[in-house]
Design a protein around this nucleic acid. Structure first.
Length: 743
DNA sequence: AGCACGCCGACT
DNA sequence: GTCGGCGTGCTC
């Protein structure tokens, strides 16, 4: 490894000069390349070492990299590395991942490294403290006073063992102040507790659920892929309820049996309570959990455990891709079609695609799992780049729900209402049988638009191109893009008319209100991301539903995700057309995936389920595909629509988002970029045009789209393009390679 | 990303 | 006459 830290040649005639070893150090900042530092005499440095280096007049944490920029900074400018931190070395495959991702997304290596270091996990984990009986006090101290509280503490510690601070206080029934005073007096002694054991080792041989023949066959194939100990990618496809999780947990078991680590990515880790329960049912213990708002002690402990190979399984959100696994053997991306895997801020990347790269660099197997795979993944499977495993049926004999369409043109709801008579009737029947029903509407709040009946003014965000959404329970109007909120005004801010502001259209809150009126005896549960925060709220809700403390569930997106509600037999979709508006390339695909997933909540146990879709466009291919249960046919149509124009996945796409304080500055910069646009065989540049959110958080946005054939190297084109244009200060150009949302 | 250096307005 | 605005540029 030493040879990677190249020696500086000794210039002729300066033989008295000491030989300096250069160490390229990557810092977590958007510099174009690593900086070179001098490795002090006697300091052994290897790539991956986490070091402290001087930068300006501060000390910064960086990582010794494999090679520097190649531009030789004069030796006299080199500063010495200050120290090597007592932290596990960053593994080579993670370093290559950082390099690869930077090259692909056009971010700097440092910006990507920041995501791997942002874990704030570098400091050695501070051991939790506890107390035990004090060493015999020296005679100079007066004997400390004894109180009942102190007596109880001493009794609790009578066995001579150390107790964690919190536990001791609870057992002895005293406050922390008592303990501190006793420690001060030498009656008890603060000691670091033995490091709590790392994550329990899941037992691959723990008796798991019995698999169906189809599941067993798929599981065997995945076990084999893991046992091969080389890169492979597999699409595991199966309708909701077909038991995909149990199948890929067998791959996890195979990975554990090899004593390698497994990573499972979930789109929405906050809602993973049910997933964790299934993991425990299979392995007897809980896995390590990783997401961006872990408490810092847990975060440090987990990071260390991963780095030291002590966390055999990690389940996490996309940021878990940057954990320093020492022996990664398997990466699973569950619900691979979910757009939540797309990171839209900072370094813009798709965690599903990066998971494939991470696995390839680690020589690991990757499994992409979905009931409704993305067209990208399907295409890779059909082309033979991914293996393709299909689970044909629902597990345990449960039937797929029957799907029905309600044509809102023929069966309109009463004025000011959103539930049509047929849907109302179906809910009433279901509740009458003592079964549960769910109404789905993918829109938070009470109403998406507030309109003045007197002058026609629409309440709009001043910072974004977006309506303000009424949240009636909080009495506010909110922008869902920038988070601005204001109280609902009493009068129209433009014409001053009182009581003229009218909510237009439904959000879930309004559906709750409607259901309270329609089904006064039903026990309602509202589930939306803003009213159900944290895994505890989600777990409590799941529990309430499972224990039949709820009759009617009304929710947004989050009700679609992975829940198992055994008594739910009716799902009503209030506005099935909602996702189809707007010119998004993937609008149909996404709507189909979401509606299919919601539909999958119905009838998972012995009772057959029923799904009713309210739509103004029942003839739309999405509705027809859902009605016929022909998702495969729908995806064939999608593919046929995208292939001729070389739209993804039959071509490549990258977006440049130009943003500035003023519309004029954004327009000018976008026009300059447009003039410098690359052209050539198989290359198209669209725009500049106003970005779909032409104003976001007070910044004016324009967009250019680069569309190329599949065989064109997009990154090189983008780099050359951006290098041609001097972007004025205050103007930002964000690059989104493989955009999905188009926003 | 920080952070200092630097050249133009309202204050002790 | 100084304190301080944040524009520009550097950090190995």
């Amino acid at each position: 490894m030493q040879d990677l830290l190249h020696d500086v040649s000794i210039p002729a005639g300066s033989r008295r000069q000491k030989r300096l070893r250069r160490a390229p150090v990557l810092l977590p900042y958007p510099f174009p390349a690593p900086f070179d530092y001098a490795a002090p005499e006697g300091m052994a440095l290897e790539p991956g070492d986490i070091v402290l280096v001087p930068l300006n007049r501060r000390q910064e944490v960086g990582v010794v990299w494999d090679e520097g920029a190649g531009d030789e900074v004069p030796e006299r400018k080199l500063k010495p590395v200050s120290a090597v931190l007592d932290a596990p070395r960053m593994p080579a495959d993670l370093r290559r991942f950082v390099d690869w991702m930077a090259a692909y997304t056009l971010a700097s290596q440092g910006e990507v490294l920041a995501m791997a270091l942002r874990v704030n996990a570098l400091a050695a984990p501070r051991p939790a403290m506890g107390y035990r009986l004090g060493a015999p006090t020296d005679a100079t101290h007066a004997a400390p006073r004894m109180t009942p509280q102190r007596q109880r503490v001493l009794e609790s510690l009578a066995d001579g063992l150390a107790r964690p601070v919190g536990e001791l206080a609870r057992v002895a029934g005293v406050s922390g102040a008592v303990l501190r005073a006793m420690a001060e007096a030498g009656m008890i002694e603060a000691v670091p507790l033995a490091a709590s054991p790392a994550f329990a080792l899941p037992d691959p041989a723990y008796p798991g659920p019995v698999l169906s023949p189809a599941q067993a066959e798929a599981a065997a194939s995945l076990r084999q892929a893991v046992s091969d100990r080389r890169f492979s990618a597999t699409l595991l496809e199966g309708v909701t309820g077909s038991g995909k999780t149990e199948v890929y947990l067998e791959a996890v078991a195979a990975c554990l049996a090899q004593e390698r680590q497994a990573l499972v990515l979930l789109p929405e880790i906050a809602l993973s309570a049910q997933w964790l329960a299934r993991f425990e049912a299979r392995f007897g213990v809980a896995p390590a959990v990783w997401h961006s708002d872990l408490a810092s002690r847990v975060r440090r402990r987990t990071w260390r455990a991963v780095a030291e190979g002590q966390a055999p399984v990690v389940v996490g959100a996309r940021s878990a891709l940057f954990l320093p696994f020492t022996e990664l053997g398997l990466v699973v991306v569950d619900e691979e079609h979910e757009t939540a895997f797309k990171q839209e801020e900072g370094v813009i990347y798709h965690a599903r695609d990066m998971a494939v790269v991470r696995a390839r660099l680690a020589e690991a197997a990757v499994v992409l799992v979905s009931a409704t795979p993305s067209l990208e993944t399907l295409t890779n499977a059909h082309a033979g780049r991914y293996r393709h495993l299909v689970l044909p049926q629902r597990h345990g004999g449960a039937e797929l729900p029957r799907i029905g369409l309600i044509d809102l043109r023929a069966h309109p709801p009463p004025r000011g209402r959103f539930i049509s008579p047929p849907l109302e009737e179906a809910v009433r029947e279901t509740l009458g049988r003592g079964e549960q029903a769910m109404l789905f509407l993918n829109r938070r709040g009470y109403a998406p638009l507030t309109l003045c009946r007197a002058c026609g003014h629409r309440m709009q965000c001043t910072q974004c191109t977006a309506w303000l959404v009424e949240h009636r329970t909080r009495g506010t109007l909110q922008c869902h893009h920038c988070g601005n909120q204001e109280p609902i005004p009493a009068a129209c801010p433009v014409c001053g008319a009182a009581h003229s502001l009218t909510p237009i259209g439904p959000g879930v809150e309004r559906i709750v209100e409607e259901c309270t009126a329609l089904f006064p005896a039903a026990r309602l549960l509202a589930m939306a991301s803003d009213t159900m925060q944290g895994p505890n709220a989600a777990a409590a809700a799941a529990h309430a539903v499972a224990e039949r403390m709820v009759d009617l569930i009304i929710g947004t997106q989050i009700v679609a995700k992975g829940w198992h509600f055994p008594h739910l037999t009716l799902v009503g979709v209030v506005d099935a057309d909602l996702g189809l508006a707007g010119g998004d390339l993937r609008a149909s695909e996404r709507t189909m995936q979401l509606l299919h997933q919601v539909a999958g909540r119905a009838g998972r146990a012995e009772h057959p389920g029923r799904v009713l879709l309210q739509s103004f466009a029942p003839e739309h291919p999405v509705m027809q595909a859902l009605l016929a249960g022909d998702i495969e046919g729908f995806m064939v149509q999608e593919a046929a629509a995208r292939a001729p124009g070389h739209w993804p996945p039959y071509g490549r796409l990258a977006a440049l988002i130009v943003s500035a304080e003023t519309a004029q500055a954004a327009d000018e910069a976008a026009r300059d970029l447009g003039r410098a646009a690359p052209h050539g065989e198989g290359i198209t540049v669209l725009g500049p045009a106003p970005a779909p959110l032409a104003l976001l958080r007070g910044r004016h946005r324009r967009r250019l789209l680069l569309k190329t054939r599949r065989d064109v190297a997009v990154q090189g084109l983008l780099r050359a393009w951006l290098a041609k244009v001097a972007v004025p200060r205050g103007v930002r150009v964000d690059v989104d390679v493989d955009p999905v949302s188009f926003l």
